[in-house]
């Protein structure tokens, strides 16, 4: 019998700590599939964030560094500049990348660092128990916005993909979602493209992945997928924001 579906080699055969219904597992798999297909595992170094994916280094069969909160793009810069022939990627959540680490991501992107950034946006701080994130939607209730996010005080959710696409140096910036099989296929293509761009030494690539947090949203996994579709995608439109001509 022909084997048609297996665990990617770049993904470790271990149980993760992610909550039931959380889409981190899907995104991990997409990253591992892309690394396998490009056959780059032996020269790839990942950088884990602080947040739910803090233990990502346990889930990939890859060399990994764990960065301080928000500093992954700076750590990745150090690795890539030391080992320019290697493939370096960061895997960061929205608190890590869009709040405490905004300076690091903006300047890594602005320098055109040849790194790949997988940016997982689930509109909430998951690891610390569901506090308001810079990406939390207007009126969305969290443990630190119990009356709903008040935009007159907390401002509006940050659209990182759009903001970073105003910079000259980045080669590829896209937003995808993992709430349906069709969107997962698109997410896979975008993540693979973001690695391909680095392999071809074209510079900075970032994929923002809209993700669910059933536990802290207080929804069942199935309802969380629908909530993402109904609430997040209208505010965070999917698509490519920056594509290099030769890769288009």
């Amino acid at each position: 019998m022909k084997l048609v579906f297996d665990r990617p080699r770049a993904l470790a055969d271990v149980q993760t700590h992610y909550c039931p219904g959380c889409t981190h597992g899907i995104i991990h798999r997409l990253v591992a599939e892309a690394i396998d297909e490009l056959d780059i595992a032996e020269r790839t170094v990942g950088v884990a964030p602080v947040g739910c994916a803090v233990l990502a280094y346990n889930y990939f069969n890859l060399d990994f560094q764990e960065a301080a909160h928000g500093r992954a793009p700076a750590v990745a810069t150090g690795i890539k500049r030391a080992l320019p022939e290697n493939v370096v990627f960061t895997y960061q959540g929205d608190g890590d990348l869009a709040s405490i680490g905004t300076a690091e991501i903006v300047h890594a992107a602005n320098r055109g660092e040849a790194i790949t950034v997988v940016y997982v946006n689930n509109a909430i701080y998951g690891m610390t128990g569901g506090q308001m994130a810079p990406t939390t939607l207007p009126d969305q209730k969290t443990s630190t916005s119990p009356y709903g996010r008040d935009v007159s005080s907390a401002g509006y959710p940050i659209r990182m993909a759009e903001m970073l696409s105003t910079l000259v140096a980045p080669q590829y910036i896209a937003r995808v979602a993992v709430n349906s099989p069709a969107n997962i296929q698109r997410a896979k293509r975008a993540i693979k493209k973001a690695f391909e761009i680095q392999v071809k030494n074209k510079g900075f690539a970032l994929v923002e992945v809209l993700s669910t947090c059933p536990t802290n949203w207080g929804l069942s996994p199935e309802k969380a997928l629908r909530w993402l579709e109904d609430n997040m995608i209208p505010y965070y439109p999917l698509g490519d924001f920056k594509v290099p001509k030769e890769v288009e």
């Binding site: 500093r71 700076a74 750590v75 150090g78 690795i79 500049r81 030391a82 300076a103 690091e104 300047h107």
Partner: peptide, 26 residues
């Protein structure tokens, strides 16, 4: 060799972390 002016002191020390972890003298 590599000279890089970082965006901040915080970024600079974290670049050091990355490069040191990659085995370089930094």
């Amino acid at each position: 060799r590599v000279f890089l002016q970082a965006e901040s002191e915080i970024a600079a020390i974290n670049m050091v972390y990355g490069a040191a972890g990659a085995g370089a003298r930094v």
